[in-house]
């Protein structure tokens, strides 16, 4: 299976998001680069709205992620509840 990834700016907005990603994707690998965090996962990576909301204690719209997004790889499917990156092969 190929690797998907998402890279986010390192800041206070993204800290709980990265924590949520690690909780929901136990196999994900977090790589810290200057000012940037890149998270790799085999085949699939999911960001769940509920997990982020539990960590930040307020309602969260997954589209807010746009503000701190740097790059990503994989096919994307975004709904109200989940943002999923995946490869088919």
């Amino acid at each position: 299976m190929s690797t998907v990834f998402i890279a986010l700016q390192t800041n206070e907005d993204t800290r709980p998001i990265i924590e949520a990603i690690v909780q929901d994707n136990p196999a994900a690998i977090v790589n810290e680069a200057p000012a940037m965090v890149k998270i790799d996962a085999e085949g699939k990576l999911v960001i769940r709205r509920e997990t982020v909301e539990e960590l930040i204690g307020r309602p969260y719209d997954l589209q807010e992620l746009q503000v701190n997004l740097i790059t990503m790889s994989g096919n994307l499917d975004q709904t109200d509840d989940e943002m999923t990156l995946y490869w088919n092969a």
Partner: peptide, 28 residues
């Protein structure tokens, strides 16, 4: 963008890093 902007951050160029990241959020 990623090496250029990361490079700006690494070399203390906050201005370039910030426009780079702002642009990069659209690139995704």
């Amino acid at each position: 963008f990623v090496p250029f902007v990361s490079g700006a951050a690494y070399n203390g160029d906050m201005g370039t890093m910030t426009f780079g990241f702002s642009a990069q959020s659209d690139e995704a």
